[in-house]
Design a binder for these strands. Structure first.
Lengths: 261, 261
DNA sequence: GACCAAGTTTCAAATAGTGAAACCGACGGG
DNA sequence: CCCGTCGGTTTCACTATTTGAAACTTGGTC
């Protein structure tokens, strides 16, 4: 999380600092950040000041600790509403959840990682935003592989370079080669499996959400447990999932550019 | 929204651009932003490039339109979880909603504006994040006035300077003087009313959430309609609301700085 | 084929950012 | 009571980054 290769300009550094503050789960002191960051004291200080002044961070006067500011929450709202697929997809997720009775995930790709932007839980009722925004690995999740499979070569390369290939379970595809073969299989099959590759007992069927021009804009998955379902049963849902994914894609396109062709 | 007085440094400008993109409800073209912003072409172009490169914006290659990027969503999640009171307050909001059966708002102060960070709706079940993140005026809402009343002098001054004092309804306190008198009344009373000051027919009772040191960290309100309730009935709930606010304050403090005194 | 609009690149001048070091106030021994 | 230290803030000469007018592409239109 602190491994920076290319912090272009002052803006990059500032955002880097923002990430640093975000990565701690709680407000951080100046000195904590100082030891963690590569920036010299004065530079870090100024960056923090600027960010605070801009409302992206808050400096708690009682404790002298920095926390993420409210301006970020406000931007968050906008980001959530406009950038992510979540608001468009919501009714479709509901539909899919109702049809399947299983856990649904909606994800987007973020620099080689999977960002979950919305979710329907099989058991519990919907929780608030806290559930979304989580990130996960791409190489060993259904949604991750579904998106990787349809990435253009350069983007795929960039994404692959960021995979850890840690073997979470005995089923994890823990090498570049194994993953590439799997991606090929996904392309011919049209959907991706998660065969307990991330967590034992958890399986899922995922499909990519593609724009008309073939660009990956997200992925959709139905998750279950080996205790309750088999891959085959889940596979029977694939057409339904694809159908919903197509609807989401269509709506995303028309909603985002209504005046276009 | 485009009125900038103090865009310090490059970072300020970049964040300004970010806001500009966010303020449009949809992806924006370069030229739209250009006409709107004061920045010269090349400058704006570079800022957009940097932000895009940093993942804060996305450039849709099909249409050449900029939208908020996923990195922002990720930061958003962190901001939501750690900066705002929402996650801490959630169970208490539920409790208050159950007790009162009315609409509950949890808000924080953001540069003279009220930022709603969570909500319980009387009628409908809880919606997703989309509901939170909304901003509203401070001078004519219950939560806004509750927070203003307990702000230190300089902060109050800064906040007042940003109020529009637009007369939304006949009951709106549309002058600085009227508002100041009201704030004094709120301090002695311990809670704030909204007497149909923002919307006709909507009333509410709000209390500030204060840290042990007396700093304003948020506000909590119970809202209803004149059709259903009176101010007096709502006022009877004031002790309950204060109680919940105190609990939230206590938890916020212990959660954020567990190792402190 | 010339024209126009949108987007991208250039380059010298000017601004804004850098960071070693000095400074400050609070704390805690000795 | 004084001295050393620790977290945080400020200074200032040095430099790298940012700036923006203008030139240049690209792609679509008449």
């Amino acid at each position: 999380m602190a491994a920076e290769g290319h912090a272009d300009g002052t803006v990059g550094k500032a955002l880097d600092v923002l990430d640093m503050v975000a990565s701690h789960g709680r407000p951080v002191r100046f000195s904590d950040l100082l030891t963690q960051s590569a920036y010299p004291k004065a530079t870090l200080y100024r960056l923090l000041q600027t960010l605070t002044h801009q409302g992206m961070l808050t400096l708690d006067p009682d404790t002298g600790a920095y926390a993420l500011g409210v301006r970020l929450v406000r931007l968050a709202h906008a980001a959530w509403a406009q950038s992510s697929l979540a608001p468009i997809a919501r009714p479709y997720l509901d539909e899919l959840a109702a049809k399947t009775g299983e856990t649904i995930h909606l994800a987007q790709m973020d620099l080689g990682q999977v960002l979950y932007v919305d979710k329907r839980n099989a058991a519990k009722p919907v929780e608030m935003f806290a559930q979304a925004g989580k990130v996960g690995p791409a190489y060993c999740t259904g949604v991750g592989k579904a998106m990787l499979a349809y990435l253009p070569p350069e983007a795929l390369e960039a994404a692959l370079a960021r995979q850890s290939f840690y073997r979470h379970t005995p089923h994890t595809l823990a090498s570049r080669e194994a993953l590439l073969a799997e991606l090929q299989a996904i392309r011919t099959r049209g959907h991706a499996w998660d065969r307990e590759e991330h967590e034992t007992g958890i399986i899922c069927c995922a499909v990519p959400i593609l724009s008309r021009s073939g660009r990956v804009i997200g992925a959709l998955s139905v998750t279950s447990t080996t205790a309750r379902t088999t891959l085959d049963t889940l596979g029977a849902l694939a057409p339904t999932i694809k159908d919903i994914a197509a609807k989401i894609a269509a709506e995303a396109e028309s909603w985002r550019f209504p005046e276009q062709v």
